[in-house]
Simulated assay, not measured.
Amino acid sequence: MATFGIALLAMAVFWEGGIKPIWRPAMMHGQVTGSPLQKINAFIDVVQTASQRLDVRQATEALASRMASGVGYFSHVLARVPAMIGYEQGRLTLRALTHVVQPRFLFPHKPNLGGDSWLVRQYAGIHVADEKQGTSVGLSYMAQFYIDFGVPGMFVPLFLYGLLIGLIYQSLRLAAPSPLFFQSTVMVIFLQHFMSYEGEIAKLLGGLIQTWLFFLLFLYVCAPWLHRHLLAHAAIPSTANAPA
């Protein structure tokens, strides 16, 4: 496990400080073209170039800065709200709830949420890259709850959000035909969700509920049949082990 962690850290440093500064601009400016095989060859060339030019110290600092960006943005928000910008009194949370309860097939003119960089620019006061540069920099939902309600009001929606996650967890446990199905489903839903911690609450909440409903339907409709099929297949002795 320790070896795996070290290898994962090394790959993250190599990506953030070596590959990403070369590969992302090339993708953004349309320099990577051709067939999928040609793109793979181009990526291999970038990896080789990055391995020769990698500055480990600079790459480590870039990775640390990237991993701590959410905390850094939140600290800027704390300094600016409400000293320079007033609390939003629930506007961001209401925007998220409105977006979730209005499915697009019933509300085709529902506006797209777009990128999240405007939150960092407006409330943290940091001019980060946006969708015009081919990226989106998010502000954590904890910071958004603070912008809406301040302290201690932010802890109420945080508690309700955690309660929702707990209810989703429990519903999946009750619907799953076996612990294996339950664990697999929970890993897919919550790993993806918590990795997007810095995303906008409207997108996180909508994505969480949509994914939950999909897997809940799968567990009720398809998983029982699949579970019985797997058990029946496992119970059939193989030809090699069958008695002569």
Rank of each mutant, 00 (worst) to 15 (best):
T135C: 11
T135D: 10
T135Q: 12
T135E: 14
T135F: 03
S136M: 09
S136Q: 05
S136K: 02
S136P: 00
V137Q: 12
V137Y: 00
G138K: 02
G138I: 02
G138F: 01
S140I: 02
S140G: 13
A143P: 01
Q144K: 10
Q144E: 12
F145W: 09
F145N: 11
F145Y: 11
F145D: 10
F145R: 04
Y146M: 09
I147G: 03
I147S: 08
D148A: 00
D148T: 04
F149Y: 15
G150D: 07
G150E: 07
G150S: 08
P152C: 07
P152N: 08
G153R: 00
G153C: 08
G153H: 03
M154K: 09
M154E: 07
F155Q: 10
F155R: 06
F155L: 15
F155G: 05
V156R: 01
V156A: 10
P157N: 03
L158P: 06
L158V: 14
L158A: 15
F159I: 09
L160K: 00
L163G: 08
L163F: 13
L163N: 07
L164D: 09
L164N: 06
I165Q: 15
I165K: 14
G166R: 12
G166I: 06
L167R: 10
L167G: 08
L167P: 07
L167H: 09
I168Y: 02
I168T: 02
I168Q: 03
I168G: 06
I168V: 15
Y169D: 15
Q170A: 15
Q170E: 14
Q170M: 14
Q170C: 08
S171F: 09
S171M: 13
S171D: 12
L172V: 14
R173V: 14
R173K: 15
R173A: 15
R173D: 13
R173Y: 07
R173L: 12
R173S: 14
L174M: 13
L174P: 00
A175R: 06
A176I: 03
A176N: 05
S178K: 01
S178G: 00
S178T: 10
S178C: 02
P179R: 06
L180M: 11
L180W: 11
